[in-house]
């Protein structure tokens, strides 16, 4: 085996592994701050008389906020690694140290924005007698900042791997922006369903969907006592977060994997990706058949 291919293979595996972990952490970060689409339910709760103790972070849609964490951390890391290299540090050491520093700065920015968003949103709920609970903000805040730190760090490393080992022609900060926004939309499309449709509505029967009339009637109790946002990720990470991670990890891994072969010249990766898409589409269809067969029609809807 040629050494170039071996390096590429290690790079693909590394990128896939980093992407997988980043997916888990990112989904946990969004759940800890109840951001993205399920946030509308947390926002509705005080209007129907539920006083909440959730951390209402809602910095933006999940994609742009992740884009900012990744792009900011990666930009700082890249610039700082040049400064370290000027001081005589080796390139790879420089990148590792700089990535940590970049992610730390990003976590501070996230903390500031999260505090602003939570306090302002709670203030806007004054008409529904929703007080500002400090414990609802201060308990999840360091947790959420820590998760943001990890997300930013992992996405920074991922973009350096993609640009350095896999040979993507974009500069690392731009790859970080792309990866951040892509991961944000994947996480808000997959992991958030587990948070929004299951964790917030555990008191409704499993499998009922959340009818529009029930929206806003979220759970207020945790496993013990009043529910705080730190109670959420431990539930969602087990299933929603892992599945999110699988989606993002598969994307990065399969995209890199399809570029390892050269049997049809530059067209190889396109042919392989088309085949992968077809296979995954068949999986989707079989999964649909499986759920329909095993769950059966909804009671009372058979002849509707």
């Amino acid at each position: 085996m040629e050494p170039v291919t071996l390096t590429l293979m290690i790079g693909v595996g590394l990128a896939g592994a980093i992407a997988f972990i980043a997916g888990i952490i990112e989904d946990a970060e969004s759940d800890a701050g109840s951001s993205s689409n399920p946030n509308s339910q947390v926002q509705l709760a005080p209007q129907i008389g539920h006083i909440i103790t959730y951390y209402d972070k809602a910095i933006a849609g999940e994609p742009p906020q992740n884009g900012l964490w990744a792009a900011a951390a990666c930009t700082i890391a890249l610039l700082l690694s040049w400064r370290f290299a000027d001081l005589g540090m080796g390139q790879y050491y420089a990148i590792f140290f700089a990535a940590v520093a970049g992610a730390a700065v990003t976590a501070l920015v996230q903390g500031c924005l999260g505090i602003f968003a939570h306090i302002s949103r709670i203030t806007s709920m004054a008409a529904f007698k929703q007080p500002l609970y400090w414990h609802a903000l201060l308990t999840p805040l360091p947790y959420s900042m820590g998760l943001c730190f990890l997300t930013a760090l992992l996405l920074t490393l991922l973009s350096f791997v993609a640009s350095g080992i896999l040979g993507n022609s974009f500069a690392p900060p731009l790859i970080a922006l792309f990866m951040g926004i892509t991961l944000g939309s994947i996480a808000s499309g997959t992991g958030d369903i587990h948070y929004g449709a299951e964790r917030l509505y555990q008191h409704l029967p499993f499998g009922s969907g959340i009818a529009i009339s029930n929206q806003g009637d979220i759970d207020l109790k945790g496993e013990y006592g009043f529910r705080n946002s730190v109670d959420t990720p431990y539930f969602c990470m087990r299933f929603g977060g892992t599945i999110t991670a699988l989606a993002f990890g598969l994307l990065i891994f399969l995209d890199g994997w399809s570029r390892l072969f050269t049997f049809a010249g530059p067209w190889t990766s396109i042919i392989l990706e088309a085949a992968i898409i077809a296979v995954l589409f068949i999986f989707l269809n079989r999964l649909e058949k499986y759920t329909r067969d095993s769950y059966g029609p909804y009671p009372g809807q058979e002849d509707a």
Binding site: A58, I59, A60, L113, F116, S120, R121, S124, M125
Partner: peptide, 16 residues
């Protein structure tokens, strides 16, 4: 982008 969209998004609610 985040800085211009976040002030409204962060304040969203009836008392905005």
């Amino acid at each position: 982008a985040l800085t211009i969209l976040h002030p409204y998004n962060g304040n969203l609610g009836a008392g905005e």
